[in-house]
Computed example of a mutant assay.
Amino acid sequence: MNIFTSIRQNSIGLGIFAVMTAGLIALTHQFTEQTIQDNIVEAQLSAFNEILPPERYDNNLAEDTVMLPANPLLGSSEPVKAYVARNDGDVEALIFETVAPGGYNGNLDLLVAIDRNSVVTGARVISHKETPGLGDKVDLQKSSWILSFSGKSFENTSMQAWNVKKDGGEFDQFTGATITPRAVVRAVKNTLIYFNENKDALLSR
């Protein structure tokens, strides 16, 4: 009987310990989940403000979003999210989560901001698998190349000019790496084409 009593007491003790541990984990998750989410939103807004000046909008970009149907111009077979920047209720610009297929080591994920006048206010590569020292120069932390899209439109840059210099355009390629910048230029250009083709609907949201 002493053995069974000991086993039962140990089982009860382990059960209480398990309940307390689970409760502690649940409380920790509850208190840290909001902090984690706040940090994600803060990082997101920081990225947005790099490509669209914050004085140009007065709404919460993280919450004012729209899911766009899959479209080859946006580089994805899945719906694409866009963030709507408003000023006094009017759409001032959109920031697209677009994809650049065909990088040297796969797809690249981009943010592309386009204002209501069809001008690219900025672009950033937010995810890639490019080779360090070569294709990774599309990353702002590696070079300033991505800044060359700021202020570009089809009004001041012809369709042919939206290519790397090797293809007769005006955008630099990287020494030993043409495929990746070519893919990014094409993606930004296609996003701008998509915006122009759907401009009325996008600006009326």
Rank of each mutant, 00 (worst) to 15 (best):
M1S: 10
I3S: 10
I3D: 11
S6P: 03
I7K: 14
R8W: 11
R8N: 11
N10V: 09
G13E: 07
G15S: 13
A18Q: 08
M20N: 01
T21N: 05
A26T: 15
Q30H: 14
F31H: 11
F31Y: 13
F31L: 14
Q34K: 14
Q34P: 07
Q37D: 12
E42M: 12
S46E: 15
S46R: 14
F48K: 03
N49P: 09
L52R: 05
L52P: 07
P53L: 08
E55W: 08
Y57W: 13
N60K: 14
L61T: 06
E63Q: 15
D64Y: 04
D64H: 09
T65H: 08
T65V: 15
M67Q: 14
L68N: 09
L68E: 03
P72N: 11
L74E: 06
G75I: 05
E78P: 05
E78C: 01
V80A: 10
K81M: 11
A82T: 12
Y83K: 08
R86I: 01
N87T: 10
D88C: 04
D90N: 11
D90E: 14
D90W: 07
V91F: 04
V91M: 08
V91P: 12
V91D: 04
E92H: 09
L94Q: 08
F96P: 05
E97K: 12
V99I: 14
A100R: 02
N105K: 07
N105T: 10
G106D: 07
N107T: 15
L108I: 15
L108C: 11
D109K: 13
D109M: 12
L111N: 01
A113L: 06
A113K: 08
S118F: 00
V119I: 15
T121L: 02
A123S: 09
V125W: 03
H128I: 05
K129H: 15
P132G: 08
G133F: 04
L134K: 06
G135Q: 05
K137M: 08
Q141P: 00
Q141V: 06
S144H: 09
S144F: 00
W145H: 06
W145P: 10
I146F: 00
I146A: 04
G151V: 04
K152H: 00
S153R: 06
M159I: 09
Q160V: 10
V164A: 02
V164M: 02
V164H: 02
D172E: 14
Q173T: 09
Q173A: 13
Q173W: 04
F174C: 04
A177H: 06
T178M: 05
T178G: 04
I179W: 00
T180V: 06
P181D: 04
V185N: 01
V185D: 01
R186T: 14
R186I: 00
V188K: 01
V188P: 10
K189D: 02
N190H: 10
F195Q: 00
N196L: 10
D200I: 11
D200L: 13
L202A: 03
S204A: 15
